[in-house]
């Protein structure tokens, strides 16, 4: 009897849900600790409140660890793909590949920028790409990247990004998305992949004001020109 040809289930929605839980728990724990000033409470209320928060934090930590382990281990982590945007576009599973690439690269870029914890929506990136492809994109890869940049930001592919410390760059989202799409267009070998992503993030940080203003204008032509300017210099 011939075996039925079953496609493996798509783990991405579950992965996204687990990442969402992990983000909420991490952010929730930080918010409680930052908000309450327990030292101002009189005893025994202060002692009771501290014990309760410790218990809640312990619970949150164990769920967070389970969610992280599940998201990374059971459902599989990603390596940064070495393929370029114009190569991915031709694949049958292009939207899923694009979503994974955006998630993995944004995660690395946000950490480099000093954002340790933000929610990155792989599913939004995937949906953005699918819709963009249906609209029959035209022009050069830089024009595609400009269009995708605006669509990704409109879909809020990054949520809850707060830069840490004094090195704040203001508008994190456009700068991070620019860095990732610049990397995605760059010629690179597999061994250079990480260094190129780092270089793209460094360029985006160094030119953060110019990039944020250009993307903020919503002018696709100007955004494409900015990609064109840097794509061979990453």
């Amino acid at each position: 009897m011939p075996r039925p040809n079953l496609a493996p289930p798509d783990a991405a929605p579950l992965r996204e849900a687990l990442r969402g839980i992990r983000f909420l728990l991490r952010r929730g724990g930080a918010t409680v600790a930052d908000t309450l000033t327990l030292d101002a409470l009189p005893d025994p209320a202060a002692g009771l409140a501290k014990r309760m928060i410790r218990e809640v934090e312990g619970l949150a930590r164990s769920v967070d660890e389970a969610a992280s382990a599940a998201a990374k281990g059971v459902l599989g982590g990603h390596d940064n793909p070495a393929e370029k945007l114009d190569e991915i576009v031709g694949h049958s599973s292009a939207a899923a590949e694009f979503g994974r690439a955006i998630y993995t690269a944004l995660d690395a870029v946000l950490r480099r920028i000093g954002v340790d914890d933000a929610f990155i929506s792989e599913m939004s990136a995937r949906a953005v790409f699918a819709a963009w492809r249906q609209d029959h994109p035209h022009g050069q890869p830089q024009d595609w990247a400009a269009d995708l940049t605006l669509r990704l930001l409109a879909a809020r592919v990054i949520r809850g990004a707060v830069p840490a410390g004094s090195g704040s760059i203001g508008r994190v989202e456009p700068v991070a998305v620019f860095a990732v799409l610049l990397w995605l267009q760059s010629d690179r070998s597999e061994s250079e992949n990480e260094a190129v992503l780092e270089a793209a993030a460094d360029i985006a940080l160094a030119r953060a004001t110019e990039i944020a203003a250009t993307i903020g204008s919503g002018d696709q032509g100007r955004i494409a020109a900015l990609y064109r300017k840097y794509v061979d210099h990453v």
């Binding site: 270089a199 460094d202 360029i203 940080l205 160094a206 030119r207 840097y230 210099h233």
Partner: peptide, 13 residues
Amino acid sequence: DDTKLAAAFTRWL
């Protein structure tokens, strides 16, 4: 400083 180095590089370009 990586960011200063990248800034110098882009200004040079």
